[in-house]
Design a protein around this nucleic acid. Sequence first.
DNA 1: ACCAAGTTTCAGAAAATACTGAAACTACAA
DNA 2: TTGTAGTTTCAGTATTTTCTGAAACTTGGT
Lengths: 178, 178
Amino acid sequence: MKKAQPGDDRRTLLEARDEFVTQWGTIGTAWGINRTMAQVHALLITAANLMSTDEIMEDLKISRGNAHKNLRDLVSWGLIRSVVRKGERKEYFEAEKNVWKMFCIILRERRRREMRPAQAALQECAARTRGLRGAEAAAFNKQIKDLSDFLELADNVITKISRSEQSRMVPWALKFLK
Amino acid sequence: MKKAQPGDDRRTLLEARDEFVTQWGTIGTAWGINRTMAQVHALLITAANLMSTDEIMEDLKISRGNAHKNLRDLVSWGLIRSVVRKGERKEYFEAEKNVWKMFCIILRERRRREMRPAQAALQECAARTRGLRGAEAAAFNKQIKDLSDFLELADNVITKISRSEQSRMVPWALKFLK
DNA sequence: ACCAAGTTTCAGAAAATACTGAAACTACAA
DNA sequence: TTGTAGTTTCAGTATTTTCTGAAACTTGGT
């Protein structure tokens, strides 16, 4: 029987991380997020150190253009930030690793990018049919208004949650579950 | 100056509904949902009566195959149901119009389709790296565990919300906002 | 001014996704 | 049975999204 080697642990870790990156990519896809973006994110939240564009290209076997684009997108979401080590020209990246903060960032961004336009569209439709005669028009207007009101409530709740501290929300959630 | 005609109201309504269908399609796309599926849904939640496959094909100018597929998908989500009028062979469709119920259905389905696989993947990764030696392995394992714990908490909260009555949750949300 | 290291852009290629239309299928009614 | 009204399937096509790789650009050092 072979003895367990330190190298075995290292290999297991690398494999597990690879597995995580792959899985996170698949999950991202199901959530409507670009696979590569999810993989880059997965790589960075499990990175022990800052990573350069070249390391990411290497790890994921992707082109420079692809790596570049997805890194920029992640930066624009606020999920990662770029760091320049003094004396070096190369850019490095690091992810926000705190899960609660990640969650709040995603909430805020999805709200901004996805809920806002929806609300605007609904309000436009509601305005156009306000005061039209006929039962059908009234029913349509009510349906739109219901959707719009609901979205507004949800929007407010999300805003409030995304501004809260983990230390307040988590115990609160646990209490809610009881 | 022309007098307002009943026909004007009807035209305005049809146009507004068309606008809503288009916008909902775009919004759906941003949310990672197939455009046609979102449009069919929009059509049905604002329909005064049951609609047949042919009417939907006609309204959206889409093929039978496409209409069929998206109707089936919506049925499998539970967002619409098919109705057979007695004495008729044709299938008709109607949507769940109550916004709170719609929301709960979507929560439950996304949880089932998207959160469950994510949790399974995370647990697998956590298991593989539990007890590995070295600081990096410990950090990796902790990060995965944090993600996994958070997802589990979120899962429980979503489950609880999706089982609640609107009459309990909405006042509660309003109080939360204060 | 010029070079070297690095970043950004973007046209074309590849891959993923969605759609069409027609044929196959199902089930009821004459 | 046979015909008919309707549903389902699916191979091929179209569209959309993502990716590549190389050229253009930027910036700091000599």
